[in-house]
C-alpha cells in the first residue's frame, strides 16, 4: 500500500516529464537542443496562473470537460498496479471500469470540443471517435488476453499475477501483444504517425483541434491529463512485458519508472523516423493492431498458455 502510494506520487510528478523525454529524443535526431525536460511542467504552472477565456456561445459542458477528463484519467490510474504493487482499490472486474474511465475521459473531451461549435473542433472530435472505435477494441482484446493468461479480471492480478514465465510459455503472443499495445499507445496519446502534437495546422489536427478553444487552467488540466494518459499506457506496456514478480519493491519502482521513460524514448525515435500517415491510412494501421492482438489471443488459446 505504502509502496503503491509512493509509486502513485511518483507517477503524478513524472508523467509530464515523459513529453520532455520525447522532445529531447526528437531534438537529438533533428540536431537541435530541444526544450527543457521539465518544459511541460513549466507550461502547466504558467497556464495555471492565467485566466480562462470562454466563448459566450459555449455552455457548462465546455468548462467541465477539461477537469472531468483529468478526473476520469486519474481514477483510471488508481486501479493500475503502479510500480508492480497491487492497487488497494482493485476488485474483480475493475478492468472494465478502467476501460470505461478512459472512454469517459475521451467522450468528455469530445463533448467539450463539440460544445464550441467550431468546425475545426468538430473535425477533430469526429476523427478522435473514428479512430477510438478500433483502438478501444484492441484494448479490450488485450484485457481479455491478460484475463486469460492470469485467470482473473482484476487489473492487479492481470498485470502482475501472471507468474514469471509467460515469456517462456507464450513468447509469440506476448510479442504480438506488446506491438498491439504500442499501436494503441501511439493512437491514444496522439503521437506520430496518427496525430502530430507539434503541428499548428488546424486542418490536420486531432487532439489539438479539440482543445483549440481551451485556455488558462483548463489547458493546463488538458496538458497534465495527456501526461497521465501517456504514463498509464507506458505503465501497462511495462507491466505487460516485464516479469517482475520476484523484484523487491524498490527495484520494481525503478523498473517501472525506467520502463515508462524507455517507452517515451521509443515514441521519440518512432516520431523521428517516420512521417505521419494520411488519415485514410490510420484506420488501416489500427486494424492491423487489432488483428495482431487477435492473433496473440488465438495463439495463446491454441498453444495452451492458459494458466
Amino acid at each position: 500500500m505504502m509502496y503503491w502510494l509512493l509509486n502513485l506520487v511518483l507517477a503524478l510528478l513524472l508523467a509530464p516529464v515523459l513529453f520532455g523525454v520525447i522532445n529531447k529524443v526528437k531534438a537529438f535526431f533533428a540536431g537541435r537542443k530541444g526544450p527543457r525536460l521539465m518544459q511541460t511542467w513549466y507550461d502547466i504552472f504558467k497556464l495555471l496562473r492565467k485566466g480562462s477565456v470562454y466563448s459566450t456561445s459555449s455552455t457548462w459542458i465546455f468548462k467541465f470537460a477539461p477537469v472531468g477528463t483529468l478526473a476520469a484519467l486519474f481514477i483510471a490510474m488508481l486501479f493500475l498496479p503502479l510500480g508492480f504493487c497491487s492497487s488497494p482499490l482493485g476488485f474483480q472486474g475493475d478492468a472494465l471500469l478502467f476501460l470505461y474511465m478512459l472512454g469517459l475521459g475521451r467522450i468528455l473531451t469530445v463533448l467539450g470540443a463539440l460544445d464550441t461549435a467550431s468546425s475545426f473542433e468538430g473535425m477533430g472530435a469526429a476523427r478522435e471517435l473514428q479512430f477510438s472505435v478500433v483502438s478501444e477494441g484492441t484494448m479490450l482484446l488485450l484485457l481479455i488476453f491478460l484475463a486469460i493468461q492470469s485467470s482473473s479480471c482484476e487489473l492487479n492480478t492481470m498485470l502482475c499475477g501472471r507468474g514469471n514465465s509467460f515469456w517462456m510459455s507464450a513468447a509469440p503472443s506476448m510479442l504480438l501483444s506488446a506491438v498491439a499495445l504500442y499501436v494503441v499507445l501511439l493512437t491514444e496519446c496522439c503521437r506520430v504517425p496518427v496525430d502530430d502534437p507539434e503541428t499548428h495546422l488546424e486542418l490536420t489536427m486531432i487532439h489539438e483541434a479539440m482543445i483549440l478553444d481551451n485556455s488558462g487552467p483548463d489547458l493546463a488540466f488538458i496538458h497534465y491529463g495527456a501526461g497521465l494518459k501517456l504514463w498509464i499506457f507506458s505503465a501497462i506496456l511495462t507491466a505487460l512485458v516485464v516479469p517482475a514478480d520476484l523484484l523487491s519493491p524498490w527495484s520494481a519502482l525503478l523498473v517501472m519508472t525506467s520502463g515508462c521513460f524507455l517507452t517515451a524514448v521509443f515514441v521519440g525515435i518512432t516520431e523521428s523516423m517516420m512521417a505521419r500517415y494520411r488519415f485514410l491510412k490510420v484506420p488501416q494501421m489500427l486494424m492491423g493492431g487489432f488483428c495482431v492482438e487477435f492473433a496473440a489471443l488465438a495463439l495463446l488459446l491454441i498453444s495452451g498458455g492458459v494458466k
Binding site: 526528437k26 535526431f29 533533428a30 540536431g31 506520430v192 507539434e198 495546422l201 516520431e271 512521417a275 505521419r276
Partner: peptide
C-alpha cells in the same frame, strides 16, 4: 513540407 507531414529531421535541417 517535411514539417507538415511531421518528418522532423529534414524539417530542422532545411530550416537551418
Amino acid at each position: 513540407l517535411a514539417g507538415d507531414v511531421a518528418y522532423l529531421p529534414t524539417a530542422s535541417f532545411c530550416g537551418r
